[in-house]
Design a protein around this nucleic acid. Sequence first.
DNA 1: GAGACTTACGCAAGTCGTAAGTATA
DNA 2: TATACTTACGACTTGCGTAAGTCTC
Lengths: 301, 301
Amino acid sequence: MDPQQLRTFVAVVDHSSFSAAARALGYTQSAVSQHIAALEADLEAPLVTRRPVAPTEAGGRLLEHARPLLLRLDAARADLGRLRRTRPGRLAVACTPGALTPAVAEAVTRVRTASPRLAVSVRVCGRDEAVEAALTGTADLALADGAVAPSDPLPLPEAAPLTAFGIAQEPLAVLLPAGHPLAGRPALRLADLAAARWIDAPDAAVPLDELRAAARTDGFGPQLGYAGADFRGLCALVAAGGGLAAAARDAARGVAGVVAVPLSAPRLVHRVEVLHPRTPTAPAAGLAEALRPTASGTAGG
Amino acid sequence: MDPQQLRTFVAVVDHSSFSAAARALGYTQSAVSQHIAALEADLEAPLVTRRPVAPTEAGGRLLEHARPLLLRLDAARADLGRLRRTRPGRLAVACTPGALTPAVAEAVTRVRTASPRLAVSVRVCGRDEAVEAALTGTADLALADGAVAPSDPLPLPEAAPLTAFGIAQEPLAVLLPAGHPLAGRPALRLADLAAARWIDAPDAAVPLDELRAAARTDGFGPQLGYAGADFRGLCALVAAGGGLAAAARDAARGVAGVVAVPLSAPRLVHRVEVLHPRTPTAPAAGLAEALRPTASGTAGG
DNA sequence: GAGACTTACGCAAGTCGTAAGTATA
DNA sequence: TATACTTACGACTTGCGTAAGTCTC
């Protein structure tokens, strides 16, 4: 089970093609074929069907291990790299849309103003991608948001250890189109929305999976998928009646056609966390410190 | 970062010697030397000091990744192996001492009686070892115990996904020698024991680290280390005044010289969980089902 | 028959063991 | 000086690319 072979296997599945994976990895088709053959011989099980190329049951199982494994391998290399050379001239932040609150934006701006020679960059992406960036060193610090029970930590993929602490916790709201019959209510319970259609936008708002888990419910009937990390686009869909979404109460403030109604039951909050490697770069440590809640803060971690 | 090289690195650190690691792995010293040299060249950092052989800072960091990485690699192989061949004639259980409650023992006996041709084995070991056994297929099912806040899950190392559910939850107690001034109390608070000496027996009783984490305290002053998974020996030490330990209230019932006093604050319970791979073997699934709490059960999970 | 995966084969690189080298207690 | 790690070197294995082969749509 060579990591290189695992990487090839993942690429083959992602591209549903040996040749496309070869192109992506800079190999020949032949090499890819040999990688897969070697893996299948090693594990004594077919991993992908050919024509069409798709993971078998064993292949699916292997995938669940391979991805975290490769991520952790990259994280290990990045971790050791950080020990050696520190790159104090850069501060790259990876951030989920819901985590880029005004307070966060202000803190980033403050760092930027205070250190004019520091190359500050912010990348908005999904949570998994943000965690991956923090682990592999693509970003120096990540910010993620989600829905959890009050004072619970966010359920993060634990491929490798990350330091995490909460910086904000506020009411969780349901985004409804302005004309929706429930839009005038002061608060809603999830039970009121049993028949509602939802939009599953795991990278732009609270992932439905997480809401389901935190609320200990199944449901959330037929969903409209929404890929990408653009919150405005999601709001447009909500406004158009495409479905509902969950977000922080103030996230959609001022967005035309969308009303945010707090969710009163089950008891859930919208939480934002800072994530960084256990040995952050100096600028990342500085920003993390600036974001850390003080005595008046609302979140622990 | 070849897994084989990582395995060699871990062995070198564990044996504090290149030659001993070579013997253990079936290599020559030369090969071990080359593995380490290759790793150090790859990661561009010294990983172990020579003479004496000990991990450097970078080496320590690498270790934190390498162990879970190798475990997950083994878990992946075991997982795929289970898909292929099922070994219905065996039921190997790995179990922490505190998890082998009378109810568990009875359930195992019942399985054994019901299936006379099934080779049933129970191995008592520390929690990490039990988790490892369940992940790598050394055991078909694991049972682990620990101290947590009521209805919280046990904090398990998450090298790879395991199905886990609680099967018992009962008051957590402090084990004191019979003559101890606090032995007569109906209940104790951790604060009463601020000055006490503890025994840290992570494989035989509740690990102090965990108690500390669950109680959100530092403390537990000077400790006596106790390695191994033998509960009787630990009780002997407690009886002799070697220090205190935490365990389920009924664990030390009937042990001469030891008194178990319930811990009333902070609010903690002793919890037992069943752990098995997501695709358990048939006998393991049977035992898990037999252990699963019914309507009258005390634990969720 | 064209596209896509597999197999054959040759070359280059890597890996291990033997043995000589070197450094430390 | 003895022990333990490192380096040199040769035999062998592995891994990749080229190119021919095979299978399916």
